[in-house]
Design a protein around this nucleic acid. Structure first.
Length: 474
RNA sequence: GCCCCCAUCGUCUAGUGGCCUAGGACGCCGCCCUUUCAAGGCGGUAACGCCGGUUCGAAUCCGGUUGGGGGUACCA
């Protein structure tokens, strides 16, 4: 056993978007490649002619892979390659197939084929099979599907899948202008690269017999196949970029950790077979086996992803957590003015926020009150906390109590102080803190209040309570 | 229509004939802790689609059925 190259393929889009399904496929391939000494994971980009020689379209994919930890510095990683690398070979192969009689030219239009079909259930009827047409304008090249059959696809996940040749039409491998189609290009590329194992989405299962026939016609042994279950939405339809949130980048921007994403994605169709699901990549990689992959479709459950993400965030060292929050703290994107940001204050409050965010972007709403000139009031919170007989009374009393220079401005003392103020109004701390919290942070839920007040300082705290009182009376 | 795939709690799954009165995780619900909200602790809810076989015994094997999904282009 010398070499077991493995490859997966991604279709780029003009936005460079990377589909979560592709990400899972990449991860599975990556694990497989790394398990073998000479395993290779090949990133080959295939798309229409329009995508040729436009590596910038695929930049997003390369970056997304790097984000997941699939780096091109690893000897197991190869690529990205572009379809154009083998463009010449594609045409050459088409010609060879024609010369060997494995393919023939056909000048039928779609309409003609349709009219001729007495049975609308069949595809192309083989009309030009024996007409001996020469290459020429308006003539596409069709592969001559051999009589007999069936073609048997041995799939590592699904087992033996049979396709009767009567159900495989003579498919087009090159357009009238000579340009090759996906089916041909795909096989030629794989042959050229010495691919021995193909792990890809189930949507490709139906065209596998065609590819296998092509491999054989070219005189090669087809690779081993493994067709992964489709990832679906809540309506159990294949995740589509039109209606579903599928871009890995979208999750990245929301503040999902790559570790969590990798962990979650690996569990979509596969299980390490242990009583725990939170498992780092380093432990999953050697455990992964394509034969253990499930064959039924899997729902992409963002709730579970969030839960995983929260776990990974909490497991971060504080310093690391602070660091990872940086992109959302950037004054370019953050809602506060640049001069409002206080690094020390953030570092002090970060540990309190760490267990409260499920995705990193939520850090903003947790700490914005510290850096904003004035809090942004959530109306529901306001109405709830500022009820008549409680809101104004608590605020005035707190304002007065906080003015006392004898009151040390630190969390413990502030808590005791507000507790006392509450008591004198017949309120437990739970109720008493609400108006102050809303006045100072703008919301009824948030980080522990007294630590927040301590960081905000006496002056700004009193100023905000004062402002809230004014707002109440307005 | 035709071809192909799939079928265990709401979801992701464990389970490859007896260890299953079906296990875990997420969600959900309740309780505890508690300055709000989280986190944490404890407990709970909830599934083998249906019908036939095979077998002493079936979630596990076979057939059918129903229901999902994918593919059916001179797209990729």
């Amino acid at each position: 056993m010398t070499e077991h190259p493995i490859r997966t393929r991604f279709a780029p889009s003009p936005t460079g978007m990377f589909h979560v399904g592709s990400a899972r496929s990449a991860l599975f391939n990556w694990a497989l490649a790394r398990q073998q000494d000479e395993g290779r994971f090949v990133l080959r980009i295939e798309d229409t002619d329009a995508a040729r020689n436009k590596p910038e379209w695929t930049e997003g994919i390369v970056q997304a892979l790097a984000w997941l930890g699939i780096g091109d510095s690893d000897p197991h990683f190869e690529g990205p390659y572009f379809q154009s690398s083998y463009a010449g070979k594609h045409r050459e192969t088409a010609e060879r197939l024609y010369k060997e009689g494995r393919a023939y030219y056909c000048d039928c239009t779609r309409e003609q084929v349709q009219e001729r079909r007495d049975n609308p259930n069949l595809g192309y009827d083989g009309f030009c099979r024996d007409r001996g047409l020469e290459p020429g304008p308006g003539r596409a090249l069709r592969f001559r599907v051999p009589e007999g059959g069936p073609t048997v696809v041995e799939d590592a996940i699904r087992g033996r899948v049979e396709f009767d040749h009567t159900s495989i039409e003579d498919f087009v491998i090159a357009r009238a202008d000579g340009s090759p189609l996906f089916a041909l290009a795909n096989v030629v590329d794989d042959v050229e690269m010495g691919i021995t194992q193909v792990v890809r989405g189930e949507e490709h299962l139906s065209n596998t017999p065609k590819q296998q026939l092509l491999w054989q016609a070219l005189g090669h042994t087809p690779p081993g196949w493994a067709h992964l279950p489709v990832i679906v939405n809540e309506k159990r339809q294949k995740l589509s970029k039109r209606r579903d949130k599928v871009a890995l980048e979208a999750y990245q921007q929301e503040g999902f950790l790559p570790e969590a994403m990798v962990n979650y994605l690996m569990l979509l169709g596969w299980s390490p077979g242990e009583d725990r699901e939170i498992m780092p990549w380093s432990q999953m990689e050697p455990l992964f086996a394509v034969s253990d992959v499930n064959s039924s479709s899997a729902f992409f459950d963002e709730k579970k992803l969030r839960a995983f993400n929260g776990e990974y965030i909490r497991a971060l060292a504080t310093e690391e957590f602070i660091d990872r929050c940086r992109p959302w703290l950037d004054p370019e994107v953050a809602p506060w003015p640049e001069e409002g940001y206080d690094e020390d204050a953030f570092r002090a409050i970060a540990p309190l926020a760490q267990s409260r965010v499920a995705v990193l972007s939520e850090i903003v709403a947790n700490v914005d009150f510290l850096f904003l000139d004035e809090p942004v009031f959530d109306e529901q919170s306001w109405t709830k906390a500022m009820k008549p007989g409680v809101g104004a009374e608590m605020l005035s009393a707190a304002l007065e109590r906080f003015a006392d220079p004898g009151l040390a401005w630190e969390a413990e003392a502030l808590k005791t102080a507000l507790e006392e103020v509450g008591q004198s109004h017949g309120l437990k701390l739970g109720k008493a803190q609400a108006p102050v919290r809303v006045a100072v942070t703008g919301r009824s839920v948030g980080l522990p209040l007294f630590e927040s007040l301590e960081l905000l300082g006496r002056g700004r705290t009193r100023q905000r309570i004062d402002a809230a009182l004014a707002r109440l009376n307005a």
